[in-house]
Design a protein around this nucleic acid. Sequence first.
DNA 1: GTAGCTTGTTGACCGTTGCTCAGCAAGCCG
DNA 2: CGGCTTGCTGAGCAACGGTCAACAAGCTAC
Lengths: 192, 192
Amino acid sequence: MTHAPVPPRRRSAGDRRAQLVAIGLELLPTTPVQELTIDEVARRAGISRSLLFHYFASKRDYYTAVTRAAADVLLEHLAPRPGLPADEQATGMLERYVGWVETYRDAHLSFVRGAAAGDPWVAGIYEETREALVDLTLTALELPDDARRRQLVRAWFAFTEDLVIQWVREPTMERAELVALLRGFLTSLLDA
Amino acid sequence: MTHAPVPPRRRSAGDRRAQLVAIGLELLPTTPVQELTIDEVARRAGISRSLLFHYFASKRDYYTAVTRAAADVLLEHLAPRPGLPADEQATGMLERYVGWVETYRDAHLSFVRGAAAGDPWVAGIYEETREALVDLTLTALELPDDARRRQLVRAWFAFTEDLVIQWVREPTMERAELVALLRGFLTSLLDA
DNA sequence: GTAGCTTGTTGACCGTTGCTCAGCAAGCCG
DNA sequence: CGGCTTGCTGAGCAACGGTCAACAAGCTAC
Protein backbone atom coordinates (compact mmCIF):
# COMPACT_ATOMS: atom_id res chain seq x y z
CA MET A 1 0.00 0.00 0.00
CA THR A 2 1.51 3.25 -1.06
CA HIS A 3 0.90 6.51 0.68
CA ALA A 4 -1.18 8.19 -1.97
CA PRO A 5 1.02 11.28 -2.55
CA VAL A 6 -1.61 13.97 -2.09
CA PRO A 7 -4.40 13.14 -4.49
CA PRO A 8 -4.90 16.29 -6.51
CA ARG A 9 -8.08 18.03 -5.46
CA ARG A 10 -10.43 19.96 -7.57
CA ARG A 11 -10.69 23.58 -6.52
CA SER A 12 -12.76 26.56 -7.50
CA ALA A 13 -11.18 29.04 -9.84
CA GLY A 14 -10.92 31.71 -7.15
CA ASP A 15 -9.27 29.35 -4.70
CA ARG A 16 -6.63 28.27 -7.17
CA ARG A 17 -5.71 31.77 -8.19
CA ALA A 18 -5.43 32.80 -4.57
CA GLN A 19 -3.35 29.73 -3.75
CA LEU A 20 -0.97 30.37 -6.63
CA VAL A 21 -0.51 34.02 -5.72
CA ALA A 22 0.06 33.01 -2.10
CA ILE A 23 2.79 30.59 -3.18
CA GLY A 24 4.38 33.39 -5.15
CA LEU A 25 4.37 35.59 -2.07
CA GLU A 26 5.99 32.84 -0.02
CA LEU A 27 8.71 32.51 -2.61
CA LEU A 28 9.31 36.25 -2.90
CA PRO A 29 11.77 36.59 0.02
CA THR A 30 14.12 34.00 -1.41
CA THR A 31 13.72 34.53 -5.14
CA PRO A 32 13.62 37.60 -7.37
CA VAL A 33 10.10 37.68 -8.78
CA GLN A 34 10.93 37.17 -12.40
CA GLU A 35 13.24 34.28 -11.68
CA LEU A 36 10.74 32.02 -10.02
CA THR A 37 9.96 29.21 -12.44
CA ILE A 38 6.52 28.03 -13.38
CA ASP A 39 7.67 24.48 -12.72
CA GLU A 40 8.56 25.29 -9.14
CA VAL A 41 5.30 27.07 -8.40
CA ALA A 42 3.23 24.33 -10.00
CA ARG A 43 5.15 21.67 -8.09
CA ARG A 44 4.49 23.46 -4.79
CA ALA A 45 0.82 23.77 -5.62
CA GLY A 46 0.70 20.12 -6.56
CA ILE A 47 -0.64 20.84 -10.02
CA SER A 48 0.66 20.71 -13.57
CA ARG A 49 2.28 23.65 -15.31
CA SER A 50 -0.57 23.70 -17.77
CA LEU A 51 -3.06 24.56 -15.05
CA LEU A 52 -1.13 27.62 -14.03
CA PHE A 53 -1.33 28.84 -17.60
CA HIS A 54 -5.04 28.28 -17.40
CA TYR A 55 -5.28 30.96 -14.73
CA PHE A 56 -2.50 33.27 -15.85
CA ALA A 57 -2.04 33.97 -19.52
CA SER A 58 1.72 34.14 -19.25
CA LYS A 59 4.51 34.00 -16.73
CA ARG A 60 4.62 37.78 -16.71
CA ASP A 61 0.91 37.86 -16.03
CA TYR A 62 1.54 35.65 -13.04
CA TYR A 63 4.38 37.48 -11.40
CA THR A 64 2.82 40.86 -11.95
CA ALA A 65 -0.16 39.51 -10.00
CA VAL A 66 2.21 38.41 -7.25
CA THR A 67 3.96 41.77 -7.24
CA ARG A 68 0.69 43.63 -7.10
CA ALA A 69 -0.41 41.50 -4.17
CA ALA A 70 2.82 42.32 -2.33
CA ALA A 71 2.35 46.02 -3.04
CA ASP A 72 -1.19 45.88 -1.72
CA VAL A 73 -0.09 44.33 1.55
CA LEU A 74 2.50 47.08 2.01
CA LEU A 75 0.09 49.87 1.15
CA GLU A 76 -2.52 48.54 3.51
CA HIS A 77 0.02 48.38 6.29
CA LEU A 78 1.06 51.99 5.73
CA ALA A 79 -2.42 53.38 5.26
CA PRO A 80 -3.20 56.27 7.63
CA ARG A 81 -4.95 55.31 10.86
CA PRO A 82 -8.14 57.31 11.08
CA GLY A 83 -8.73 59.41 14.17
CA LEU A 84 -5.23 60.78 14.51
CA PRO A 85 -4.37 64.45 14.15
CA ALA A 86 -3.11 65.20 10.67
CA ASP A 87 0.46 66.10 11.60
CA GLU A 88 0.98 62.81 13.41
CA GLN A 89 -0.11 60.79 10.40
CA ALA A 90 3.14 61.33 8.52
CA THR A 91 5.24 60.35 11.50
CA GLY A 92 3.03 57.34 12.11
CA MET A 93 3.44 56.21 8.52
CA LEU A 94 7.19 56.61 8.79
CA GLU A 95 7.30 54.54 11.92
CA ARG A 96 5.17 51.84 10.39
CA TYR A 97 7.42 51.87 7.36
CA VAL A 98 10.56 51.40 9.43
CA GLY A 99 8.84 48.64 11.38
CA TRP A 100 7.85 46.98 8.15
CA VAL A 101 11.38 46.93 6.80
CA GLU A 102 12.68 45.70 10.17
CA THR A 103 10.22 42.83 10.21
CA TYR A 104 10.25 41.73 6.61
CA ARG A 105 13.82 42.64 5.72
CA ASP A 106 14.56 40.09 3.04
CA ALA A 107 11.07 39.97 1.65
CA HIS A 108 10.99 43.75 1.37
CA LEU A 109 14.40 43.97 -0.20
CA SER A 110 13.37 41.31 -2.67
CA PHE A 111 10.26 43.29 -3.42
CA VAL A 112 12.10 46.55 -3.99
CA ARG A 113 14.76 44.83 -6.06
CA GLY A 114 12.29 42.96 -8.17
CA ALA A 115 10.28 46.11 -8.52
CA ALA A 116 13.12 48.17 -9.88
CA ALA A 117 14.22 45.29 -12.04
CA GLY A 118 14.45 45.07 -15.76
CA ASP A 119 10.87 44.12 -16.41
CA PRO A 120 8.89 47.26 -17.29
CA TRP A 121 5.61 45.75 -16.12
CA VAL A 122 6.84 45.07 -12.63
CA ALA A 123 8.54 48.44 -12.58
CA GLY A 124 5.21 49.96 -13.51
CA ILE A 125 3.48 48.38 -10.55
CA TYR A 126 6.12 49.75 -8.25
CA GLU A 127 5.69 53.17 -9.82
CA GLU A 128 2.01 53.03 -8.98
CA THR A 129 2.81 52.03 -5.42
CA ARG A 130 5.21 54.92 -5.04
CA GLU A 131 2.72 57.36 -6.46
CA ALA A 132 0.14 56.05 -4.02
CA LEU A 133 2.61 56.57 -1.18
CA VAL A 134 3.29 60.10 -2.35
CA ASP A 135 -0.45 60.74 -2.36
CA LEU A 136 -0.76 59.36 1.15
CA THR A 137 2.08 61.55 2.35
CA LEU A 138 0.83 64.72 0.73
CA THR A 139 -2.68 64.33 2.07
CA ALA A 140 -1.30 63.41 5.48
CA LEU A 141 0.62 66.69 5.44
CA GLU A 142 -2.45 68.46 4.06
CA LEU A 143 -0.49 69.89 1.16
CA PRO A 144 -1.73 70.48 -2.37
CA ASP A 145 0.23 68.45 -4.90
CA ASP A 146 1.87 70.25 -7.73
CA ALA A 147 4.38 68.51 -9.98
CA ARG A 148 7.38 69.90 -8.16
CA ARG A 149 6.26 68.83 -4.72
CA ARG A 150 5.48 65.35 -6.01
CA GLN A 151 8.98 65.03 -7.40
CA LEU A 152 10.53 66.10 -4.13
CA VAL A 153 8.42 63.73 -2.06
CA ARG A 154 9.15 60.88 -4.43
CA ALA A 155 12.87 61.52 -4.26
CA TRP A 156 12.62 61.87 -0.48
CA PHE A 157 11.01 58.47 -0.45
CA ALA A 158 13.91 57.03 -2.43
CA PHE A 159 16.17 58.55 0.22
CA THR A 160 14.08 57.02 2.97
CA GLU A 161 13.99 53.63 1.34
CA ASP A 162 17.73 53.49 0.92
CA LEU A 163 18.58 54.81 4.36
CA VAL A 164 16.17 52.53 6.19
CA ILE A 165 17.43 49.46 4.36
CA GLN A 166 21.02 50.38 5.20
CA TRP A 167 20.08 51.20 8.78
CA VAL A 168 18.41 47.85 9.30
CA ARG A 169 21.58 46.16 8.13
CA GLU A 170 23.81 48.30 10.33
CA PRO A 171 22.08 50.54 12.88
CA THR A 172 24.24 53.64 13.16
CA MET A 173 21.76 55.58 15.26
CA GLU A 174 18.77 55.21 17.51
CA ARG A 175 15.53 54.21 15.89
CA ALA A 176 13.85 57.39 17.09
CA GLU A 177 16.72 59.45 15.74
CA LEU A 178 16.31 57.84 12.35
CA VAL A 179 12.61 58.60 12.20
CA ALA A 180 13.19 62.17 13.37
CA LEU A 181 15.90 62.71 10.78
CA LEU A 182 13.71 61.43 7.96
CA ARG A 183 10.76 63.45 9.16
CA GLY A 184 12.83 66.61 9.52
CA PHE A 185 14.20 66.33 6.03
CA LEU A 186 10.81 65.94 4.55
CA THR A 187 9.54 69.15 6.08
CA SER A 188 12.69 71.14 5.34
CA LEU A 189 12.49 69.90 1.75
CA LEU A 190 8.93 71.08 1.36
CA ASP A 191 9.59 74.42 3.02
CA ALA A 192 12.48 75.42 0.82
CA MET B 1 28.29 35.71 -58.31
CA THR B 2 26.90 36.23 -54.80
CA HIS B 3 27.78 39.11 -52.53
CA ALA B 4 29.80 37.25 -49.97
CA PRO B 5 27.86 38.18 -46.80
CA VAL B 6 30.62 39.51 -44.60
CA PRO B 7 33.28 36.83 -44.55
CA PRO B 8 33.96 36.13 -40.86
CA ARG B 9 37.32 37.49 -39.84
CA ARG B 10 39.72 36.08 -37.38
CA ARG B 11 40.40 38.43 -34.50
CA SER B 12 42.71 38.55 -31.55
CA ALA B 13 41.28 37.52 -28.21
CA GLY B 14 41.44 41.05 -26.87
CA ASP B 15 39.68 42.48 -29.91
CA ARG B 16 36.83 40.00 -29.70
CA ARG B 17 36.25 40.55 -26.02
CA ALA B 18 36.23 44.29 -26.52
CA GLN B 19 33.90 43.99 -29.49
CA LEU B 20 31.44 41.82 -27.57
CA VAL B 21 31.41 44.14 -24.58
CA ALA B 22 30.93 47.10 -26.91
CA ILE B 23 27.92 45.40 -28.48
CA GLY B 24 26.51 44.85 -25.01
CA LEU B 25 26.94 48.53 -24.24
CA GLU B 26 25.14 49.46 -27.45
CA LEU B 27 22.26 47.20 -26.51
CA LEU B 28 22.06 48.49 -22.95
CA PRO B 29 19.83 51.51 -23.63
CA THR B 30 17.13 49.39 -25.25
CA THR B 31 17.38 46.14 -23.31
CA PRO B 32 17.69 45.33 -19.61
CA VAL B 33 21.12 43.75 -19.21
CA GLN B 34 20.06 40.32 -18.15
CA GLU B 35 17.50 40.02 -20.90
CA LEU B 36 19.84 40.41 -23.82
CA THR B 37 20.19 37.02 -25.45
CA ILE B 38 23.43 35.37 -26.40
CA ASP B 39 21.98 34.65 -29.82
CA GLU B 40 21.34 38.32 -30.47
CA VAL B 41 24.78 39.43 -29.37
CA ALA B 42 26.48 36.70 -31.38
CA ARG B 43 24.42 37.56 -34.43
CA ARG B 44 25.41 41.22 -34.19
CA ALA B 45 29.03 40.28 -33.85
CA GLY B 46 28.72 37.96 -36.84
CA ILE B 47 29.95 34.97 -34.87
CA SER B 48 28.51 31.78 -33.45
CA ARG B 49 27.11 31.48 -29.92
CA SER B 50 29.84 29.03 -29.09
CA LEU B 51 32.51 31.63 -29.60
CA LEU B 52 30.92 33.94 -27.09
CA PHE B 53 31.07 31.16 -24.55
CA HIS B 54 34.71 30.79 -25.39
CA TYR B 55 35.36 34.29 -24.08
CA PHE B 56 32.77 34.42 -21.32
CA ALA B 57 32.20 31.37 -19.16
CA SER B 58 28.50 32.02 -18.83
CA LYS B 59 25.84 34.53 -19.78
CA ARG B 60 26.14 36.03 -16.34
CA ASP B 61 29.85 36.36 -16.81
CA TYR B 62 29.14 38.27 -19.99
CA TYR B 63 26.63 40.75 -18.76
CA THR B 64 28.48 41.45 -15.58
CA ALA B 65 31.40 42.41 -17.81
CA VAL B 66 29.09 44.71 -19.74
CA THR B 67 27.71 46.21 -16.56
CA ARG B 68 31.16 46.78 -15.17
CA ALA B 69 32.19 48.50 -18.36
CA ALA B 70 29.20 50.82 -18.12
CA ALA B 71 30.00 51.58 -14.49
CA ASP B 72 33.60 52.38 -15.41
CA VAL B 73 32.53 54.87 -18.05
CA LEU B 74 30.29 56.63 -15.56
CA LEU B 75 32.91 56.71 -12.83
CA GLU B 76 35.52 58.08 -15.16
CA HIS B 77 33.16 60.81 -16.27
CA LEU B 78 32.47 61.83 -12.68
CA ALA B 79 36.03 61.61 -11.43
CA PRO B 80 37.24 64.85 -9.82
CA ARG B 81 39.07 67.26 -12.09
CA PRO B 82 42.45 67.97 -10.57
CA GLY B 83 43.43 71.56 -9.94
CA LEU B 84 40.11 72.74 -8.56
CA PRO B 85 39.62 73.94 -4.99
CA ALA B 86 38.20 71.17 -2.82
CA ASP B 87 34.83 72.73 -2.16
CA GLU B 88 34.10 73.12 -5.86
CA GLN B 89 34.78 69.49 -6.56
CA ALA B 90 31.50 68.29 -5.10
CA THR B 91 29.48 70.82 -7.07
CA GLY B 92 31.41 69.99 -10.20
CA MET B 93 30.68 66.30 -9.75
CA LEU B 94 27.01 67.06 -9.26
CA GLU B 95 26.89 69.12 -12.41
CA ARG B 96 28.65 66.43 -14.39
CA TYR B 97 26.23 63.89 -13.00
CA VAL B 98 23.19 65.92 -14.05
CA GLY B 99 24.73 66.43 -17.45
CA TRP B 100 25.36 62.72 -17.73
CA VAL B 101 21.76 61.80 -17.03
CA GLU B 102 20.57 64.52 -19.41
CA THR B 103 22.74 63.18 -22.20
CA TYR B 104 22.35 59.46 -21.74
CA ARG B 105 18.83 59.35 -20.31
CA ASP B 106 17.68 55.96 -21.52
CA ALA B 107 21.04 54.29 -21.29
CA HIS B 108 21.49 55.52 -17.75
CA LEU B 109 18.01 54.51 -16.68
CA SER B 110 18.62 51.10 -18.16
CA PHE B 111 21.87 50.89 -16.27
CA VAL B 112 20.33 51.84 -12.94
CA ARG B 113 17.39 49.53 -13.50
CA GLY B 114 19.54 46.62 -14.51
CA ALA B 115 21.84 47.34 -11.65
CA ALA B 116 19.16 47.18 -9.01
CA ALA B 117 17.63 44.16 -10.67
CA GLY B 118 17.18 40.68 -9.34
CA ASP B 119 20.62 39.41 -10.19
CA PRO B 120 22.86 39.67 -7.12
CA TRP B 121 26.01 39.84 -9.20
CA VAL B 122 24.91 42.85 -11.15
CA ALA B 123 23.55 44.40 -7.99
CA GLY B 124 26.97 43.85 -6.45
CA ILE B 125 28.69 45.76 -9.22
CA TYR B 126 26.34 48.65 -8.73
CA GLU B 127 27.01 48.53 -5.00
CA GLU B 128 30.70 48.90 -5.71
CA THR B 129 30.00 51.82 -8.00
CA ARG B 130 27.93 53.55 -5.37
CA GLU B 131 30.56 52.97 -2.74
CA ALA B 132 33.14 54.44 -5.08
CA LEU B 133 30.93 57.48 -5.60
CA VAL B 134 30.53 57.87 -1.85
CA ASP B 135 34.30 57.74 -1.51
CA LEU B 136 34.68 60.38 -4.18
CA THR B 137 32.15 62.62 -2.50
CA LEU B 138 33.61 62.27 0.99
CA THR B 139 37.13 63.00 -0.14
CA ALA B 140 35.90 65.90 -2.26
CA LEU B 141 34.31 67.34 0.88
CA GLU B 142 37.44 66.48 2.85
CA LEU B 143 35.46 64.59 5.44
CA PRO B 144 36.52 61.47 7.33
CA ASP B 145 34.25 58.55 6.61
CA ASP B 146 32.60 56.82 9.53
CA ALA B 147 29.78 54.34 9.00
CA ARG B 148 27.03 56.82 9.73
CA ARG B 149 28.26 59.43 7.30
CA ARG B 150 28.63 56.81 4.61
CA GLN B 151 25.03 55.75 5.06
CA LEU B 152 23.81 59.30 4.83
CA VAL B 153 25.78 60.07 1.72
CA ARG B 154 24.64 56.85 0.10
CA ALA B 155 21.02 57.62 0.86
CA TRP B 156 21.55 61.15 -0.38
CA PHE B 157 22.81 59.69 -3.59
CA ALA B 158 19.66 57.60 -3.91
CA PHE B 159 17.74 60.85 -3.46
CA THR B 160 19.83 62.55 -6.09
CA GLU B 161 19.49 59.72 -8.54
CA ASP B 162 15.74 59.63 -8.26
CA LEU B 163 15.25 63.37 -8.39
CA VAL B 164 17.53 63.92 -11.35
CA ILE B 165 15.86 61.15 -13.34
CA GLN B 166 12.45 62.63 -12.62
CA TRP B 167 13.68 66.14 -13.36
CA VAL B 168 15.05 65.13 -16.73
CA ARG B 169 11.66 63.70 -17.60
CA GLU B 170 9.79 66.77 -16.39
CA PRO B 171 11.90 69.82 -15.48
CA THR B 172 10.06 71.50 -12.62
CA MET B 173 12.83 73.96 -11.84
CA GLU B 174 15.92 75.58 -13.30
CA ARG B 175 18.95 73.40 -13.76
CA ALA B 176 20.98 75.60 -11.43
CA GLU B 177 18.26 75.44 -8.82
CA LEU B 178 18.30 71.66 -8.97
CA VAL B 179 22.03 71.47 -8.45
CA ALA B 180 21.86 73.99 -5.60
CA LEU B 181 19.06 72.09 -3.92
CA LEU B 182 20.94 68.81 -4.10
CA ARG B 183 24.14 70.44 -2.92
CA GLY B 184 22.40 72.17 -0.03
CA PHE B 185 20.66 69.02 1.00
CA LEU B 186 23.98 67.20 1.18
CA THR B 187 25.69 69.73 3.41
CA SER B 188 22.73 70.14 5.74
CA LEU B 189 22.60 66.34 6.02
CA LEU B 190 26.22 66.13 7.04
CA ASP B 191 26.00 69.03 9.47
CA ALA B 192 23.07 67.63 11.45
C1' DG C 1 56.85 23.87 -48.84
C1' DT C 2 55.18 21.03 -45.64
C1' DA C 3 54.89 19.39 -40.96
C1' DG C 4 53.17 20.81 -36.71
C1' DC C 5 51.72 23.82 -33.16
C1' DT C 6 48.67 27.29 -31.33
C1' DT C 7 44.30 29.28 -31.12
C1' DG C 8 40.18 31.56 -33.13
C1' DT C 9 36.02 29.46 -34.64
C1' DT C 10 32.05 26.42 -35.66
C1' DG C 11 28.00 22.98 -35.87
C1' DA C 12 25.68 19.44 -33.71
C1' DC C 13 23.66 18.21 -29.56
C1' DC C 14 21.49 18.40 -24.66
C1' DG C 15 18.50 20.00 -20.65
C1' DT C 16 15.51 23.49 -19.05
C1' DT C 17 11.82 26.60 -19.39
C1' DG C 18 7.91 29.30 -21.16
C1' DC C 19 3.85 28.10 -23.61
C1' DT C 20 0.05 25.46 -26.59
C1' DC C 21 -3.45 22.20 -27.46
C1' DA C 22 -6.31 18.33 -27.68
C1' DG C 23 -8.60 15.74 -24.65
C1' DC C 24 -9.64 13.42 -20.01
C1' DA C 25 -12.52 13.38 -15.89
C1' DA C 26 -15.03 15.31 -11.89
C1' DG C 27 -19.10 17.12 -10.53
C1' DC C 28 -23.94 18.54 -11.63
C1' DC C 29 -28.42 18.77 -13.87
C1' DG C 30 -32.06 16.69 -16.71
C1' DC D 1 -28.18 7.22 -17.95
C1' DG D 2 -26.82 11.14 -21.20
C1' DG D 3 -24.98 15.50 -21.65
C1' DC D 4 -23.09 19.80 -20.02
C1' DT D 5 -19.69 22.67 -17.76
C1' DT D 6 -15.11 23.20 -16.17
C1' DG D 7 -11.01 21.97 -13.42
C1' DC D 8 -7.16 19.61 -14.93
C1' DT D 9 -3.34 16.82 -17.40
C1' DG D 10 0.32 14.99 -20.74
C1' DA D 11 2.56 15.23 -24.85
C1' DG D 12 4.96 18.17 -27.51
C1' DC D 13 7.03 22.70 -29.63
C1' DA D 14 10.27 26.68 -29.78
C1' DA D 15 13.71 29.44 -27.63
C1' DC D 16 17.51 29.83 -24.82
C1' DG D 17 21.76 28.77 -21.98
C1' DG D 18 25.53 25.74 -22.13
C1' DT D 19 28.90 21.65 -23.76
C1' DC D 20 32.05 19.32 -26.80
C1' DA D 21 34.64 17.48 -30.39
C1' DA D 22 36.61 18.93 -34.31
C1' DC D 23 37.85 22.23 -38.20
C1' DA D 24 40.90 25.80 -39.99
C1' DA D 25 43.74 30.15 -40.07
C1' DG D 26 48.01 31.78 -39.23
C1' DC D 27 52.57 31.23 -37.38
C1' DT D 28 57.10 28.99 -36.73
C1' DA D 29 60.64 25.19 -37.63
C1' DC D 30 62.87 22.25 -40.35
